[in-house]
Simulated scan of single mutants.
Amino acid sequence: MNILIAEDNQVIQLLNAKLMRDWGFEFDMVSNGIEAVEYAQRNRGRYDLYLMDIEMPKMNGIEATRRIRGSTPYFPIMALTVRTDYRPSCFAAGMDAFSEKTCAPDQLLQAIKELTVKLTLINSSDVNVVSIKEATPVNHDELQELRALKSKGLTKLKLVGLDHVFVVHKNIQNKISHDLIGECKELSEFIDRSPSEPGRCHLYKTNLHVTKDLFLPEELEDAIRREDEVAMKFSNATDRRISE
């Protein structure tokens, strides 16, 4: 986890720094809005979340957010301020969440977890190498979708370059990694839980081709229950590179 924090109050800076270290998070700290924009632009793709103070010198957090949204790839931004009347302006500028300063540590940690939810990307550079990793959503709407799925123990899985998107158990990327490298299998199975067309998918290692067997209504519940039991064995998410 890598977090960018924009805060000009030195006492709150020290408090936030201690919390980040206690939670094992990497972080950068800036003290004004201009630095907030510069760090976001300089470190494109590095940050999982931005904790943004609103009332800062040189440039406020709302204007900083507008500039970030217009110049960098999407990543979640959360406002932290004592002024609740800033809420509409924060969301209008492109922020994803709003909290009064200073919120309790357990509430802040919960908000961080909800805002840094990821989707699973499966990519193949050639027939011998497959990468499985977690990726930041591409916009606010996808973040909201992922947050809703996370509350149900689910996530999204995308096959890069093939435009296939599936709704899957939150641990399914680890099962796929285990199947393809740990067991040296040529395919891995998982259930696509998309409401419109649920089915059992067969993912082939050599070309990331997927076939799907659709479920009868009476089959789905039992199939999901059995996959849940298997998937819970793979609870440690990690980025993996798989090779034959």
Rank of each mutant, 00 (worst) to 15 (best):
I224L: 14
E227H: 15
G94A: 08
T102I: 06
M29W: 04
P217I: 09
V130R: 01
F234M: 03
H169V: 00
N174L: 09
L162H: 07
D192I: 03
L14A: 15
I224Y: 08
A93P: 02
E55V: 10
R83V: 10
C184L: 15
M95C: 00
Q110T: 14
R193Q: 14
K158P: 10
D85A: 11
I112Y: 07
A92S: 13
I5P: 01
M232W: 08
L14F: 15
L51Y: 00
R83H: 15
L51T: 02
A93T: 01
L203R: 02
T155M: 06
M20C: 12
L108Y: 07
A111D: 11
M95H: 00
I176L: 11
M1L: 06
D22W: 09
A17N: 11
P105F: 01
N207W: 03
L216S: 13
H169K: 00
V11E: 11
G94M: 07
M232F: 10
K205N: 07
S177C: 15
E189W: 12
V230L: 14
T155N: 03
R21K: 13
I224K: 04
I132P: 00
I224F: 12
E145D: 10
C90P: 09
A6S: 05
V127P: 10
E145C: 09
K118M: 09
E100I: 12
I34G: 03
D179A: 14
L216T: 01
R200M: 15
I191L: 02
E183K: 13
N123D: 12
D192S: 12
D192V: 02
I77C: 08
S151M: 12
E186W: 13
L208C: 05
L119I: 05
K113M: 12
S124Y: 03
G182M: 11
D126P: 08
